[in-house]
Nucleic acid binder design. Structure first.
Lengths: 137, 137
DNA sequence: TTACGATCTACAGTCACTGTAGGAGCAAGC
DNA sequence: GCTTGCTCCTACAGTGACTGTAGATCGTAA
């Protein structure tokens, strides 16, 4: 039943139905009464989708990964290049988030009992280095 | 003009108008002909908004940060706690992205010339450790 | 004066869900 | 057998943060 697979994968029921709608999940088998049932393969697939989404893959990317894994005899190149493209953007995001973490850590430290006027949160976030200067535009 | 501030901050023109609509940017001054004009303060504010969005703050969070910075005499506590809450989630995201980076790096290495059947991309992403076992549900 | 690009408003579309309304299936208790 | 209460069903509207498009207007250079 959909509620069980939802609990086991930490996915909302409506989200699972949505994945079926857009073809990320196969059409579920039904009981006589019309309820969806799922086997281990579906649980694994849903878990894969959730992890991939969680880690920033778009549903289109996930769709192509699933399609690739459905033809295991074909060359791995395509999946590899998908992963490589993603790797670059993941590394970029890590770098930017690390910079933010430092800024936020500084900011919360500086903010202890201070006043906004002395607070670095905004400056830390803005980092105005990449702004052109100029007057009214 | 809106096109200039768009270029200087790397923001799309429609996005700037959208920020004005939802009150993230103040209502812009207009020329006689009705075109929006901006000063340095607006450029800085837009740059701040873009950085904050880029780094994962919601428009609501940004709105409250702007409101706080508009009353610099009030205590910094609120901005600090906002930053602290964000810090925790940023650190979590860094940890998860780092795990993904390693998985993707492994995956792309293992994939060189291999076949999907031997490929770790899916497994690396799925990490099925957090799945209950069971049959049909 | 005409052509062209930038800007204007207003609104529809996108992505990935999330929530809700109204009805049906189904096991447990009376 | 009937009610209660839960889960499930379909269908569709709403959300957040934009993005794109249509049709009109402004401003300037040829």
């Amino acid at each position: 039943m959909i509620g069980d697979i939802a609990k086991r994968t930490g996915t909302k029921v409506n989200t699972i139905r949505f994945y079926e709608d857009i073809g990320l999940m196969p059409e579920a088998a039904r009981t006589a009464g019309g309820r969806r049932t799922y086997g281990d393969a579906e649980v694994r697939q849903l878990a894969f989708i959730r992890h991939a989404r969680d880690l920033g893959f778009s549903t289109d990317e996930i769709r192509s990964l699933i399609a690739l894994s459905a033809n295991p005899d074909q060359d791995c190149k395509e999946a590899g290049s998908l992963a490589r493209r993603h790797l670059a953007s993941v590394e970029d995001r890590i770098a930017r988030l690390t910079a933010l973490r430092n800024a936020l850590a500084d900011a919360t430290r500086d903010c202890e009992g201070g006043r906004i006027a002395d607070c670095r949160v905004m400056e830390a976030i803005t980092m105005p280095a990449d702004l052109d200067s100029g007057t009214r535009v």
